Amino acid sequence: MLQMFLLVAALLIIILSLISFWLPLIKPDSEKLSPYECGFDPLGSARLPYSMRFFLVAILFLLFDLEIALLLPTPWATQIIDPPQMAFWVYTILLLLTLGFVYEWYEGGLEWAE
């Protein structure tokens, strides 16, 4: 059974690696070949003002991403001695995540156009 799993995993890795090397070579154009500098024009002036909205959305993404990462050990936490305590902390994290999302939504932090 373990050998079958390892064989399928290795085959999947090889197939996905080959696809990832082959797929970008289909239609290279100037947009794909140019460097991406976080929304800035890499050939323009470095002293142009930048949009604070871009950085606000990036920070919000990091915050929500870190809160979701706190939920990753949940399947292993179901094996602890006190399951109600585990459920309490999981629901607390989900509540904080939901409240933060609702607050940002009402404050307009998720709107791109002003």
Rank of each mutant, 00 (worst) to 15 (best):
M4Q: 09
M4E: 12
M4F: 12
L6A: 10
L6K: 11
L7I: 10
A10F: 04
I14T: 10
I15L: 11
I15D: 02
I15E: 02
I15N: 05
L18D: 08
I19F: 05
L23G: 05
L23T: 09
P24V: 03
P24T: 04
P24A: 04
L25V: 11
D29Q: 06
S30P: 01
S30L: 07
E31R: 10
K32M: 05
K32R: 12
L33R: 10
L33N: 07
S34T: 12
S34N: 09
P35C: 03
Y36D: 10
E37P: 00
G39Q: 02
G39D: 00
F40S: 04
F40A: 13
P42D: 05
L43S: 14
G44P: 01
S45W: 02
R47H: 08
R47M: 08
M52A: 13
R53N: 10
R53M: 03
F55N: 08
L56R: 15
V57N: 08
A58F: 13
A58Q: 14
I59P: 00
L60M: 12
F61I: 01
F64D: 02
F64V: 06
L66H: 05
L66W: 06
L70V: 05
L71C: 00
L72R: 04
L72Q: 03
T74L: 09
T74N: 09
W76R: 13
T78A: 09
I80A: 10
I81S: 14
P83R: 10
Q85L: 15
Q85A: 15
Q85H: 11
A87C: 10
F88I: 05
V90H: 02
I93H: 01
L95V: 11
L97P: 00
T98Y: 09
L99H: 09
G100L: 02
Y103T: 15
W105D: 04
L110Y: 12
L110T: 11
E111A: 03
W112A: 12
